[in-house]
């Protein structure tokens, strides 16, 4: 009661309010808060000694108003700080604090893009073994004994029956042997051919093959699917065309071209002034391939097509040399 009587609480509140309002920095405000409101302040000590309701209401009222004043001043100081900063002029063109970020390899970026397109079209992704049997890679796919692709000049053999796959089609054979149609799948991955490395050849490259097996599949479905795929990959204006070709595992076989996405078909260096870019091979699955995996070609039909990922990357980004993909130079990787 003594202390309560000894202090002029009106003056205390006036002085405290003035001190809080005069604080020009967070530290000054904190000092004022500690002095007038802190644990050892006169107000706090008095509050600890309060016994009657009247004094309690008076002192708590003062405390509430002063706390409010501190909060208010805090906001005011923040606003002033921003205002000062704006007046000084922050050079917002100075680079921000760097964040280190790596990159997916361009081939992975494109592979994912292709996978995502086919996932959207309702296809599964198979990425199986690269070492395959001669049967999976050639015999099951109807490749005759004299076909040059079987030659040791074209294919890496581990022994007479085992090779590094020359195409991702062995995955299709495995898929057809392990599950019942309908099958809608893409198989991206590494393939191996005995090509001496140069700007456009590599003994290892990435291929994607697409296989659809269902009832009543036609070459028209192939064309439609290829068209959808290229429109999603290269833009909605693309057109595709099919030309006759030969592959052991499809009959009829076709090559497909897409209108050049750089010149829109007008003719440029990339499309060799033809307006069309060769993209890959395709066809209606040969009935003998179905027989080789114990599927009845009377019941099941299918189409298949394949293309190289590197080629898409090179065409789209203007990369002149395939070997850059395998050098992993950060200066190249970070461009994409």
């Amino acid at each position: 009661m003594d202390s309560l009587a000894a202090v002029d609480w009106t003056a205390y509140e006036t002085q405290a309010t003035a001190a809080i309002g005069a604080a020009l920095a967070d530290s000054e405000l904190e000092d004022a808060r500690v002095h007038w409101l802190g644990r050892k302040s006169e107000l706090a000590l008095a509050l600890r000694g309060v016994r009657d309701k009247e004094s309690g209401m008076l002192l708590n009222g003062i405390r509430g108003r002063l706390e409010e004043a501190v909060q208010h001043r805090e906001q005011e100081l923040r606003r002033l700080a921003y205002q000062h900063a704006a007046e000084r002029g922050v050079d917002v063109t100075i680079p921000g604090t760097p964040v280190k970020r790596g990159r997916l390899h361009l081939l992975t970026q494109i592979r994912r893009e292709i996978e995502d397109i086919f996932l959207g079209l309702g296809y599964e992704v198979w990425d199986g073994a690269e070492v395959s049997t001669v049967w999976e890679n050639f015999d099951a796919l109807n490749t005759d004994a004299g076909h040059p692709s079987r030659s040791t000049l074209d294919t890496f053999y581990l022994d007479d029956d085992t090779i590094l796959r020359t195409q991702t089609s062995p995955d299709q054979i495995r898929a057809m042997m392990t599950r019942k149609p309908p099958i809608y799948m893409v198989s991206p991955g590494r393939v191996y051919r005995r090509d001496t490395p140069d700007a456009t050849h590599s003994p290892t490259f990435q291929q994607v093959e697409c296989l659809a097996v269902d009832r009543g599949i036609t070459l028209a479905d192939l064309r439609g699917t290829v068209l959808q795929y290229f429109r999603l990959l290269f833009g909605p204006e693309r057109e595709v065309r099919m030309r006759t070709s030969y592959f052991p595992f499809t009959e009829p076989s076709v090559e497909f071209d897409v209108t050049c996405f750089l010149c829109d078909g007008a003719g440029c260096a990339v499309c060799k002034h033809s307006g069309w870019i060769e993209m890959g091979g395709a066809g209606w699955v040969d009935p003998d391939v179905f027989r080789n995996v114990d599927l009845d070609p009377e019941e099941w039909q299918g189409f298949a097509f394949g293309f190289g990922i590197e080629r898409i990357a090179m065409l789209r980004h203007g990369l002149p040399d395939l070997r850059a993909f395998w050098e992993n130079d950060i200066r190249v990787l970070e461009q994409f």
Binding site: E115, V125, P182, Y184, I217, L219, A220, R223, M242
Partner: peptide
């Protein structure tokens, strides 16, 4: 081959997922 229309398979089942 120039006249082949562009259609899509008429599917009974869809399953596209990683």
């Amino acid at each position: 081959l120039e006249d082949v229309p562009a259609t899509l398979p008429r599917r009974q089942a869809m399953f596209g997922r990683l």
